[in-house]
Design a protein around this nucleic acid. Structure first.
Length: 279
DNA sequence: AGCATCACCTGGCTGC
DNA sequence: TGCAGCCAGGTGATGC
């Protein structure tokens, strides 16, 4: 499940293969991957355009085109982008739903088994050339930074669990179920703690943990889990899964206090934590 | 308005 | 061994 570190890794890959190149073809074969507009409209508006910039906010990828439109891609649960240099030599993987052809003969393929991911093009952009709906997102910890005062202001007065707030893209952009657990664990705060019960020191620890963990996960090119099959643009696995301290470790020992990692449910989502050292 | 819950979707795993 | 049924979760809609 791609979150900020995985999407940022893919963005860096796309930056190398797309910027300055012209999109020579776009084939939409999946029925659900393009749903905000007719697939034919997307193809017509995008083909022939040159990519001038590849940006990211939270889990959204934004390909800024030379006519000021933006091609937006969200991977959601299982979406994968793959760069293929020699398309005829490599058969398309099952669940390939969109194929973008480039002027150098290479392709970028969108593979998405669960079909939650989506592509759409918009010309509703801000002064900085990025989609206007990005205004609805909270600060991106990597792009905008996430200081303790900013986090305090974003969660002020909230009665929800801190984990619910951290994974709410309107509060902070880019954190999903996995990194929220890792951040709460590193901050020694239970994911179930109500936002309005957190003191200054705890908020400071959460903000610091978010910055550190997301940065470290990007260095290791994201997390590839056993079931989900996240790979980067070149098809390589990430390496951060070996650093997980909470997520997916129910019943295993806590590496900090020797307690046991528990699996809880918060709003029908799993949450992993240690009651021994998170409070 | 703010918060909780549900629908969407299917590969892979569990258990009988 | 085969297969039914469950689980995973980001986002937007719906309900309270």
């Amino acid at each position: 499940m791609p979150e900020l570190p995985e999407v940022e890794t893919v963005r860096r890959g796309l930056d190398g293969v797309l910027v300055g190149r012209t999109i020579t073809g776009l084939e939409v074969t999946g029925r659900r991957s393009v749903r905000r507009q007719r697939p034919g409209e997307l193809v017509e508006r995008v083909v022939g355009r040159r990519v001038v910039l590849v940006e990211r906010r939270g889990k959204y990828l934004a390909l800024v085109l030379d006519d000021d439109q933006v091609l937006v891609i969200h991977l959601r649960m299982s979406g994968q982008l793959l760069s293929v240099k020699d398309p005829h030599a490599r058969p398309r993987a099952p669940h390939t739903h969109v194929v973008m052809g480039l002027e150098d003969g290479s392709e970028v393929r969108f593979v998405d088994a669960r079909t939650f991911g989506e592509w759409f093009v918009t010309d509703d952009v801000r002064d900085d050339g990025l989609p206007s709906f990005f205004d609805q997102l909270g600060p991106d910890p990597l792009v905008d930074g996430l200081t303790a005062p900013v986090l305090r202001e974003r969660i002020a007065g909230k009665r929800t669990a801190i984990k619910v707030a951290l994974t709410d893209q309107h509060v902070v952009a880019g954190i999903g179920n996995l990194y929220a657990d890792e951040i709460c664990y590193a901050a020694r705060v239970l994911p179930t703690r109500r936002c309005d019960t957190l003191d200054e020191e705890e908020i400071r620890r959460i903000a610091a943990a978010a910055r550190r963990i997301l940065r470290e996960a990007i260095v290791l090119r994201g997390s590839s889990l056993r079931d989900a099959r996240y790979r980067d643009l070149m098809g390589d696995l990430g390496g951060y899964q070996t650093r997980h301290r909470a997520y997916g470790r129910a019943g295993e020992g806590c590496r900090r206090c020797g307690g046991t990692i528990e699996r809880l449910e918060i709003g029908a989502r799993s949450a992993y934590c240690c009651r021994g050292c998170q409070h």
